[in-house]
Write a protein that binds this DNA or RNA. Structure first.
Lengths: 225, 225
DNA sequence: CCAAAAGTGTTGTGTTTACACCCATGT
DNA sequence: ACATGGGTGTAAACACAACACTTTTGG
């Protein structure tokens, strides 16, 4: 690549970082690892790393999702590219940040994996390496916005779910309570979910009807909440 | 940077590309240059280029805006990072794409500048180098979306403008006609512009009142069109 | 006085919000 | 029988879309 021989051009390093969200225990959680190398050794950080030779960033993210979260084929979207000079003490490093949404039922976190991936509530984040806090905040803003005009929520829920679960997911991410009558009315009027004959019971309470997304793939919607 | 010595890591090249929009002659236009080097020599392309050493992408875009469009301090926003392996025949090249909005009154295009920057209507784009058509389409989608929930339109207009000019800008970008009563009503109710005592005349017609944005800086709005 | 674009209100329709009670189940 | 959360409808406020005539200017 002769362009790289120019006196002026010097390639910055290129990494990817993944903000992996899931909703569990009535809380929005992010997957973080504990760095085993300098810089920021022993700090928590987003899972990520350098692109390997001729690897597009999308593939790098898929690799990380597999390694750190044990998942394939989850909703993944490019977020933003961060390249402040100050973000990495080693020098100019460009990171292409992605966010991914994983239903709690398919996450496979193993503490034997290198750097101990673990979920943290977004409400109680530890100190983070690099500019990773900023990246998470950016991702959260994007997620909130997308909840309101797309059907992405399907990618945070199991295939079959109840309206109260769905509503809880919205509430936890948006950080506010919603009226259940209005919620059900609006969501059902979109005709993107269908009721199943079954119901889901819980301890000591009335069982809720189960639903399924008619087409669990990304769609834009008129509007939402 | 020892990370770059790894057997596996090989830095892709990093470039920026700028989609510079302006509205002129009742049309949405993009600035394109004619490439003087391989690959895609003599094809039209977005202005852009490699990052120079330790230059953040934001600065690189500002440099390009200055060189090719003769402007400083215009609305600039990072768009997306494109890194398909196939996008550049020279090898893995990541481009961080930006879009910029320039009022026609401040654009300074000079045909003596290298690679002859020129405006093209987005309705009649020539064949473009690399994946630049895709980038322009992506930028156009973003611009349309942003018109509807932000005040960005201020960055395409001169400081003083009339309601019909404003409406025309919306119409040209959204590609549809709007009702002028509803438009004026809605826009004025946002309280983001203030009327000036002056009016702007045109040939053989009633002059229109001039307005100015109260705060010409990016804001989110409730909703729009 | 004529051509051309500026300016201005009302009404009907659909969407959003606010709000409270009964139901099904497990213990 | 009771505690817990599931399920459901209506009315008022608001936002949006449709629609036509009068005004101001230059020529």
């Amino acid at each position: 690549m002769n362009v790289q021989k120019s006196k002026l051009y010097w390639p910055p390093a290129v990494t990817v970082d993944a903000v992996i969200f899931t909703v569990q225990e009535d809380d929005l959680q992010v997957l973080l690892i504990e760095r085993s190398n300098e810089p920021f050794r022993n700090y928590c950080a987003l899972p990520g790393g350098f692109l390997i030779k001729n690897e597009p960033s999308r593939d790098a993210v898929a690799r990380i999702l597999k390694d750190k979260a044990g998942v394939n084929n989850v909703y993944t979207e490019q977020l933003y590219t961060f390249d402040d000079l100050a973000r990495d003490p080693r020098g100019h490093t460009v990171t292409i940040a992605y966010f991914a949404l994983v239903p709690p039922t398919s996450l496979k976190i193993s503490s034997s994996v290198r750097e101990h991936p673990q979920l943290y509530s977004v409400k109680r984040l530890p100190n983070l390496a690099f500019d990773h806090r900023k990246i998470i905040e950016y991702a959260l803003g994007r997620l909130r916005a997308k909840l309101e005009y797309t059907n992405v929520v399907y990618s945070l829920l199991p295939k079959e779910f109840t309206i109260p679960q769905l509503q809880k997911t919205y509430e936890v991410i948006l950080g506010k309570r919603l009226d259940k009558r209005n919620f059900a009315k609006k969501f059902l009027s979109l005709n993107i979910v269908k009721p199943l004959p079954k119901k889901l019971g819980g301890p000591r309470r009335r069982p809720a009807r189960l639903y399924r997304f008619i087409s669990p793939s990304p769609q834009e919607l008129k509007k939402f909440f």
